[in-house]
Design a binder for these strands. Structure first.
Lengths: 133, 133
DNA sequence: CTCAGTGCAAACTATTTGCAGATTT
DNA sequence: AAATCTGCAAATAGTTTGCACTGAG
């Protein structure tokens, strides 16, 4: 439940936080920029400012509720952290984002880091692709 | 030779372009932000403005001379495009950038895109890692 | 001599921050 | 009531652009 997540993050359960989390949880779309959330909430006349959205998303990110991605195109994109890690395919025609998870690549990354004397902490893999024919 | 590359890109051979390309070609460091180049050139009293550096790098990118990366940390980073594609490990302690190329991952990416009905056009893979113990 | 290129300052985009008033606990 | 939170406007960081002047061909 939304409220519990927010409380566990050590944050007060406020309208802006509930509404933002609700959108992230219930939309068919899973990836949102701060501005997209702002527009959605503006339509609802929620009276929530863009600065608040950025603040809340950053707090959610710190709390591990949300993941921030830096795809091409300037704006950061946020999605709910639902535990299972995945990477992304960006459809260059439509902008659609597809998630995938591949064990072969995951394992290989760890090995590569190790081969260079490192311990893999995090990674970012984005495939930019076009629909076939 | 620098001049030839610049001409082939359909650009005039100017001091700023020569100097920027020269740094990219001859430095041991391979990845530079626009600001880093600006500081290097400022020390040489080259009188080259930051705006010019951005313009030149963007032109070089369009011409395929240079690749732009968006690592974490706001600033874009540029490196000479020397043909052989590679990905990067970012040392989170020092900021050092290590290049690697892995056929297993390269092939797998193409397969994954295809499995989802796409043709892979480009990708971005960055490993964030810490030195072992 | 012509047109592309440049420096500078101003504009822009994405994001962050200061502060006074509004909300949560 | 105390502390956190929010909206708004102003500040910032990175990058781009307009314009009059400079320099390459």
């Amino acid at each position: 439940m939304d409220k519990i997540d927010i409380k566990e993050a050590g944050l007060k359960v406020t309208q802006p936080r509930l509404k933002i989390l609700h959108i992230l949880e219930t939309s068919s779309q899973k990836h949102f920029s701060a501005e997209e959330l702002f527009h959605i909430l503006s339509k609802e006349s929620a009276g929530i400012g863009l600065a608040t959205i950025y603040r809340v998303l950053t707090q959610f990110e710190t709390a591990g509720l949300v993941i921030r991605h830096n795809f091409e195109g300037g704006q950061a994109v946020f999605e709910l952290d639902q535990g299972e890690h995945h990477d992304h395919i960006v459809d260059m025609k439509t902008g659609t984002i597809i998630e995938f998870h591949d064990e072969i690549i995951e394992k290989r990354q760890i090995e590569i880091a190790r081969e260079h004397g490192y311990r893999l902490v995090d990674h970012s893999l984005i495939l930019y692709a076009e629909p076939e024919e």
